[in-house]
C-alpha cells in the first residue's frame, strides 16, 4: 500500500504521541516501585499498625505481582480512573478537573498577552530593521527570554505589592466578582508571558524579514501594491507560520511553567495541586496531575505539528522530496 508522504507523517506523529503517553504512564507506575519503603506504610504514617498497613496494601493491590499491577494501572488510566486521593478518598481525576480550569485560564491569558504584545513588536521591528526601537527591542527580547519566570513573578510581587500597593496580588479572588478575578490574573499572566513576548517578537521579525525578501513580494511591489498591504496581507500570513508552531509548544511549556506562577501568587491550579501533594507524599495525586500535564503537552505538540502541515503546503512537498 502506498501512502502519501503527508499521511505517513501524520501516522508517524500519531504513533509517537501514543508511545509517549504509554511510556509516561509506565514510567509513573514504575517510579512507585522505587519509593523507599512500602507506599502503604508511607501513606499511613509511623503510627500505623502492621494490620492496617497490610489491609491498605491489599486495597492498593500492592500484594499482587508487578506485571498484574502494571496492567491494572494501565487499564484504569485508559478508563479514566487515575486512583484515589489518599487523604480525602475522592477520585483524583475529580481533583484534577476541579483545578484545571484555573491553570488553563492562566495559560491562555499568558499566551493571549504574548500575542497581543509580541506580534506588533515583531512587525514593527521587521519593517524598521536597524532602527533604534528595533535595537532596543532586540536587547529586551533576549532579556525577557533569558529571565526565569519565577524570578519575574517574585519581582512583580515585590514591586507591585510590597512597594507600590497597586494591585491585589495573591489568590484568584473567588468572591470578588469578575473584575477582581481579572485584576488578580494580570501579574501572574505577565510573569509567564514575558519570555513569550520576546520569543514571538524575535521569531516573527526574523521570518517576516525572510519572507519580505522573497521573489513574490518583489513582484507585488513591482505591481505597485501598497507596502502596508504587502506586509500585513501577503507577508504576514506566510511569516506567521513558524510563530504559530512555537505557540503550540508554548501552551505545553506554559502549563509546566504555570506551577511557579501559581505558587508565587497563591492561586489554585494543577501546579499548586502537585506542589501540595508532594509535600505530604500524596502519590496518586502527583501521578494523576503529572499524567494530565504530560497528556496535554503531547497532544498540543501533535496538534501543533498537524496545524503546521495544514498551514504550510510547502512542508508537505518537502516531506515528499525527503523520501
Amino acid at each position: 500500500m502506498v501512502l502519501s508522504p503527508k499521511l505517513r507523517y501524520v501516522g508517524s506523529r500519531l504513533v509517537t504521541t501514543m508511545l509517549v503517553l504509554v511510556s509516561a504512564t509506565i514510567l509513573l507506575f514504575s517510579l512507585t516501585l522505587f519509593i523507599p519503603g512500602n507506599p502503604a506504610e508511607v501513606l499511613l504514617g509511623p503510627r500505623a499498625t502492621p494490620e492496617a498497613v497490610q489491609a491498605y496494601s491489599h486495597i492498593m493491590g500492592l500484594d499482587r505481582p508487578m506485571l498484574e499491577r502494571l496492567a491494572i494501572f494501565l487499564g484504569n488510566v485508559l478508563t479514566g480512573d487515575l486512583g484515589r486521593d489518599v487523604i480525602s478518598g475522592r477520585p483524583v481525576l475529580d481533583l484534577v478537573l476541579e483545578v484545571f480550569p484555573y491553570t488553563l485560564t492562566l495559560t491562555l491569558a499568558s499566551i493571549g498577552l504574548a500575542i497581543v504584545l509580541g506580534v506588533p513588536l515583531g512587525c514593527y521591528a521587521a519593517t524598521h530593521p536597524g532602527s533604534v526601537l528595533d535595537q532596543i527591542g532586540a536587547v529586551t527580547s533576549v532579556a525577557f527570554i533569558a529571565m526565569p519566570n519565577f524570578v519575574v513573578a517574585v519581582f512583580l510581587v515585590l514591586i507591585f505589592s510590597v512597594w507600590l500597593h497597586w494591585l491585589p496580588v495573591l489568590g484568584v479572588g473567588r468572591d470578588g466578582g469578575w473584575g477582581d478575578a481579572v485584576l488578580r490574573l494580570v501579574l501572574p499572566a505577565v510573569s509567564l508571558a514575558l519570555s513569550w513576548i520576546g520569543y514571538i517578537a524575535r521569531l516573527l521579525r526574523a521570518s517576516l524579514l525572510e519572507v519580505l525578501g522573497e521573489a513574490h513580494i518583489r513582484t507585488a511591489r513591482a505591481y505597485g501594491v501598497p507596502e502596508r498591504r504587502i506586509v500585513y496581507r501577503n507577508a504576514l500570513k506566510l511569516a506567521a507560520i513558524p510563530t504559530v508552531a512555537i505557540l503550540g509548544l508554548g501552551v505545553g511549556r506554559l502549563l509546566g511553567g504555570a506551577i511557579f506562577a501559581e505558587i508565587v501568587f497563591a492561586r489554585p491550579g494543577l501546579g499548586t495541586l502537585v506542589y501540595d501533594a508532594i509535600a505530604v507524599r500524596n502519590y496518586p495525586v502527583v501521578q494523576a496531575a503529572v499524567l494530565v500535564v504530560v497528556a496535554v503537552f503531547t497532544v498540543t505538540n501533535l496538534l501543533t505539528d498537524l496545524t503546521y502541515l495544514w498551514l504550510d503546503p510547502r512542508l508537505g512537498r518537502r516531506l515528499g522530496e525527503a523520501r
Binding site: A24, G257, R281, V294
Partner: peptide, 19 residues
C-alpha cells in the same frame, strides 16, 4: 522523539516527588 516529548520540569517534578 519520546524523550523530547516529556516536559523536563514536570518530568523532574514527578521523579523527585516520588523518589
Amino acid at each position: 522523539d519520546v524523550l523530547s516529548a516529556f516536559p523536563p520540569l514536570i518530568f523532574a517534578l514527578a521523579i523527585v516527588a516520588l523518589l
